[in-house]
């Protein structure tokens, strides 16, 4: 797929808050390439620099060094009117929705159209179309405070899409929403990507958001991108400690802490966790191999997750028997799956 947004060695430094204090490096030498039409996730803990990074893409903040191009436009080189023209082609939605309280729903959605000088009749038609698209056709004359959080974010999405942008930036767009509403908003974003072909950059600290809609993900820590890959790869084979921690927030199939203690108390023998991906051996093959080797095992914990329509399973078994036999059997099944002992 064609590159759409390219960040080339981008850094953002803020002057020290106090005189004589240290400069804050919010984004540190980040290079990324985001393809046209993909949903790209950026995950990190608060303070990792992801919100600053997304503000560099639409130049709400100027870069300290490095270069960003969107399509063939070097947006970091532009200033004033020429920059603002490019900004009309990049929509943005926010954690706190940031709707104008002085305007109705329709007035908020019309705002970017006024900025680009769309005439009144056309504005009205477009606003109606957008509200229909986000499922708020009946609420045009309501004021933001009369809407629920999820509805307000839908207005935010309609506003961000008003000028038919090629890029949509979502800055923690679901962090202020309850789980059910989060899913609705994410499904809407997925639809925006699918039906309108908009490239979406999603900033979040929630792994669920990534597994639900992102094709690829970058993991950020202390201003740097420490890991990039397809969501499935990062999810099933996280290589950095921070990525592993994020994966554990959604994989409840992995026994931890008290849960692990209880399993140990209830079951004799050693505990092994086997990870299945859709590229490796199936559960059936692994279990029959264990049985053939004469290993006495019980399935004690686990689950199977769906990531972007692909399967990822984590099953924990309790195994009794001779240490050598176990080692031999596990080595045989170990070719197609990853096996880890829970100590």
């Amino acid at each position: 797929m064609a590159q759409h947004i390219v960040l080339d060695r981008v850094s953002k430094r803020f002057p020290p808050a106090k005189r004589g204090g240290e400069e804050i490096v919010a984004v540190d030498d980040v290079s990324l390439s985001i393809d046209r039409g993909e949903v790209f996730g950026i995950i990190g803990y608060s303070g990792a620099g992801k919100s600053t990074l997304v503000r560099l893409i639409n130049q709400l903040e100027p870069v300290s060094s490095g270069r960003i191009t969107i399509g063939d436009v070097p947006i970091t080189e532009l200033r004033g009117r020429r920059l603002r023209e490019q900004q009309t082609g990049i929509g943005m939605i926010f954690q706190r929705f940031n709707l104008l309280t002085s305007r109705t729903v329709a007035g908020n959605v019309a705002y970017p159209l006024e900025v680009v000088g769309v005439e009144r009749a056309e504005r009205k038609r477009r606003v109606a179309e957008l509200l229909e698209f986000v499922g708020l056709a009946g609420r045009a004359d309501a004021y933001p405070e009369q809407l629920s959080g999820g509805q307000q974010q839908r207005v935010g999405i309609a506003r961000a899409l008003a000028t038919n942008p090629q890029v949509l930036l979502a800055d923690e767009a679901t962090s202020a929403l309850d789980p059910e509403t989060t899913v609705e908003v994410l499904d809407l974003l997925a639809r925006v990507n699918r039906e309108l072909g908009v490239t979406i950059v999603v900033i979040t600290h929630e792994m669920e958001v990534i597994t639900r809609i992102a094709d690829r993900v970058a993991v950020m820590e202390a201003g740097r991108v420490v890991e990039v890959g397809t969501t499935y790869d990062v999810f099933t084979r996280p290589s950095t400690p921070v990525a592993k921690r994020f994966v554990q927030t959604v994989v409840r199939a992995l026994p931890q802490g008290d849960e692990l203690e209880q399993l140990r108390a209830k079951h004799e023998g050693r505990l092994f966790t086997i990870s299945f991906t859709d590229e490796g051996a199936s559960e059936a093959r692994v279990f029959s191999a264990l049985a053939k080797a004469g290993i006495d095992f019980n399935l004690v914990h686990g689950g199977v997750d769906d990531i972007q329509g692909r399967v990822y399973g984590l099953l924990t078994i309790a195994v009794r028997g001779d240490a050598d036999a176990i080692a031999w059997a596990l080595q045989r099944v170990g070719a197609g799956v990853r096996v880890e002992e829970q100590r």
């Binding site: 709400l60 900004q87 709707l99 104008l100 506003r159």
Partner: peptide, 24 residues
């Protein structure tokens, strides 16, 4: 945040004063 939202649409500072800051 509302000013940032207006800036993200490419609105000029003068427009933001008239259409966001004073009405809000």
């Amino acid at each position: 945040g509302v000013i940032e939202a207006a800036r993200s649409t490419g609105a000029s500072p003068w427009r933001i004063i008239r259409t966001v800051i004073l009405p809000e």
